[in-house]
Structures are given as C-alpha cells and as structure tokens.
Design a protein around this nucleic acid. Structure first.
Lengths: 228, 228
DNA sequence: CGCTAATTTGACGTGAATCAAACGGTGTGG
DNA sequence: CCACACCGTTTGATTCACGTCAAATTAGCG
C-alpha cells in the first residue's frame, strides 16, 4: 500500500523526519505500508534480515526465546520506533505486534542506500539507537533486584505514560496492551505473581479494574512511590 | 598526553577506524590520552556531558545509583567501546574504571564537528550503538528469570571470553576484573549469593580458584550447560 | 606483624515460583 | 436463548531459592 507521509502521525519524530521533504518523498517511493494484527509476527529470529520498519501506530515486542522454550520480552517498540537489523545479516530476535499496528516497511537495500546518500538519516538512526539503548538499560534497572510489587507498579506507570499524550503525566485510564503473560515475560515474573500484585494494588486503593485489561490509576503518586 | 593511532591496539575496531588515515590524524589532533586507575570515575550521572571517549585498554562499568543508594551495573565497556552522550546534555549514568585503563578522550564539540564532516564516523558510531544495544539485551536475558547458578556461570564464561584473544573460546585461566560486589550488582544478586555459587561451582569441579580473583575453568562445556 | 577490607560460610526468614483449582468472559452449537 | 467448552485470569496452598543477619576466614598492604 502507498505511504502518505503528509498525514503520518509520527512524521516529525521518526528517523525519516531528519530528511528534507523531497528526500523523504524519494525514500517513501520505495516503502510500503504494512498493517498487522495483534499477535502477528514481523520478524523471526534467524531469518535473514531483508527488511526494516518504522512503527507508525500500535505496539511491538522484541522477544527472545530461550533454549528451554520460555519467552523473554527484551523491549517494547512504540510509535516512531525503528526495527530491523542494519548491519547483521540475520534477525536477532522475534518481533511481534501486541496490538493492531501500522508500519512503514523498507527493504534493507533501500535503507543502506539512503544511509549513504543522506548522512542526516544516519544521524537520526544513531539518535534512535541511543534512545533504544537507554530504554533497554531502564528496563534492566526495572527488572533486576526489585520486588514484584515494584516491577508491576513501574510497568503500569510506564504504560500509562506512553498511553498519555504528554509523556510526563500518566494517563489516568488505560487499556493494557499486554496480557498478563506478556507483563510477566517483560518483568521476569510469573503470570500468577503479576496477577497477585495487580490484585494487591487494587486492594490497597492505588488502582481500580474494569475488566482484566482496563485499569484506572487512582493514586498515581502512591504508585510512583511504590515503584521507586 | 599525545595520541599515537599507529600503535593503538584498537585502531581497527574502534569507531575511528572508519576514518581515512588523514581524517583520523585530524581528529587525533584534538584528542587526548587519559590514564585511569581502577576505581576512578570518568563521568558522574548528571554532569553536563562535555566529553566522549573510546576505551583503548582496560574495562569500564556503567553504573546506575538508585534512589535508595544501591548500585546497579548496567553495562561493561570493553576496549574499542565508546562512552559519552552524543545527544543528551547530561550524563545519564556514572562511568567508572574497574581496572587501570587507557582512554582516548574528545570534547563533545570535536565529536559533533567530526560527525558532520565525516558521515562514515556517524555510521561507525551507529554500529557501536547497535552493538551496545545487543549487549544490553543480552545482559537483560542473562539477568532476568535465571537462577543464581546460571547467572554466575554465564558471567564467568562472558568474562573468560572477553579475556581470550578469540572471542568464541573462553580463556582457560582468568583474572576477574570485578569484585564480588561488582558481580553481584551486575547480576542482580547479593555478594553472598555470588560467593556461594562460585564455591559451589568449585565444589562441583567446574572451576578452580587460586585466590579470590583468579579462576581456572576446568570444564567449560559443563559451565556452558550450567549457564543455559 | 598487625590492621583493614574483601570474601567465605552458616543459620534463618521471606517472597516469589510452583502446583492446583476456581472463576470469568467469549464464541459456538444445540 | 441457553448450555457448554475454551482461554485468560484470579485465588489458594505449599515449596524452595535467595536475601538477610551474623560471624569466621582470608587477602592485601603498610
């Protein structure tokens, strides 16, 4: 499907925003719009890496599957995020849509060509890569040596912040894009532990649930404190 | 102190290796050699980020200090690695030398100028950043939902591999560059747990110790299996 | 040789995993 | 329209690995 950069919701945050309009149009000639349903797989670990993509809307997860078959979520990719290997020949991890998502897909060759033609694009991808690195380290800090309570509170806040328009204040009402299993795999807990902590947070009045996927943050200050 | 790129041990792996010799010389004019002792701090979180550096020899840690004062090691920086913020105004984390180290230090302005003058340098830093991202995700996979035994075995193997010349085969004999406290902070364990696991690995014949910092890998195959 | 800090070892408690069962929505077929 | 099966979620009982607290041992260094 054709791309329409003019109406793209991430046109001034994604990597391609670094390009001049005519350069962006030229790149867009070679890109395609991809629509995915939640649960669909974009890349599979080990596939030869022939495509890259910018996420326009929705949410992706980067998943590592261990030798024993268990899944670990290594990262969430939010709109304006970039996925795909630029330098290694094979995909390192699975990438799966968590909710219905729109992506802007390019062939690896197109990107490589554009990188050499447009140094500003390289710099923009370097910016994104550094941001991904910070996010990965933040997840590391969230996942290691914190109690289950802290992890779940921290995740709810992070999801509420990314659901909100202003990235600082968390949205007060929130549809969780992750199943309990996904939350558990992201935080390094079991499904049962996640469920118990959510129940406990509700019992203590910090949140309220309308159905398992919808959460209301009653006391986000107390949540912040719990997550710390 | 002056730089001597011709004899630099990382001259063909560090980011500056992407430059033509005369470009590299030009950059080297503005760089300085910095010698650090183990324990010395290069950057402190919150400092305004005025410098960047390539590690020539030694080992650095990237440390996050939590609200409660506890330390988490978020990354190890090996020779040829690059540290310093390129885009954010302040340092995100502390960076500390674990062992005596040599660095090649540049002012932030120098680097920014070089990035714009030399697109190949930007691409090289993008490569490094992606490598750091993979390393961070690998640490995440190592740190989350693995037993203390698996974490310690995995760390010993990783250290043995980076001590070895060939990055695949671990060195059979190894001086640990990390204290027990550093290992614990990297793996999200306590000092006591790390110590117990090392003792257990020795009891089971997988390793042998000559002093607390020197380890011999007796059965690296079994170690691999333990780490998996 | 003695001091100090790092490491090791031991005893004990606790928080999350495990095992197991009940509950609740959702879609299907009767 | 209701009965039923299925999947995700919740709740409960029990276990166990790791954290905590405390003490002994060793290493490094003046």
């Amino acid at each position: 499907m054709m791309l329409d950069c003019a109406h793209c919701p991430v046109r001034d945050r994604a990597a391609c925003s670094a390009l001049e309009p005519h350069e962006r149009e030229a790149l867009a000639e070679n890109g395609r719009l991809l629509l995915m349903n939640g649960g669909q797989t974009l890349f599979r670990a080990g596939d030869d890496s022939t495509r890259c993509a910018t996420l326009i809307s929705g949410l992706l997860k980067v998943v590592s599957i261990e030798a024993d078959g268990t899944e670990h979520i290594l990262a969430l990719i939010h709109p304006a995020g970039f996925v795909g290997e630029l330098f290694t020949p094979f995909a390192e991890h699975d990438v799966v849509a968590l909710v219905p998502s729109q992506l802007c897909v390019f062939g690896r060759g197109e990107i490589t060509r554009a990188l050499h033609a447009q140094p500003r694009l390289t710099e923009a991808l370097l910016r994104r890569s550094q941001a991904d690195l910070h996010a990965s380290r933040a997840l590391l800090a969230l996942s290691v040596r914190r109690s289950a309570r802290q992890k779940v509170a921290g995740l709810l806040l992070a999801l509420a912040r990314s659901a909100s328009q202003s990235p600082c204040h968390p949205a007060p009402l929130l549809d969780l894009p992750l199943s309990r299993a996904d939350m558990a795999s992201l935080l390094g807990l079991t499904i049962e532990s996640v469920s118990r902590q959510i129940s406990a947070l509700e019992r203590d009045g910090l949140i309220r649930r309308n159905g398992p996927r919808n959460v209301e943050l009653c006391d986000s200050a107390a949540l912040e404190q719990t997550a710390a």
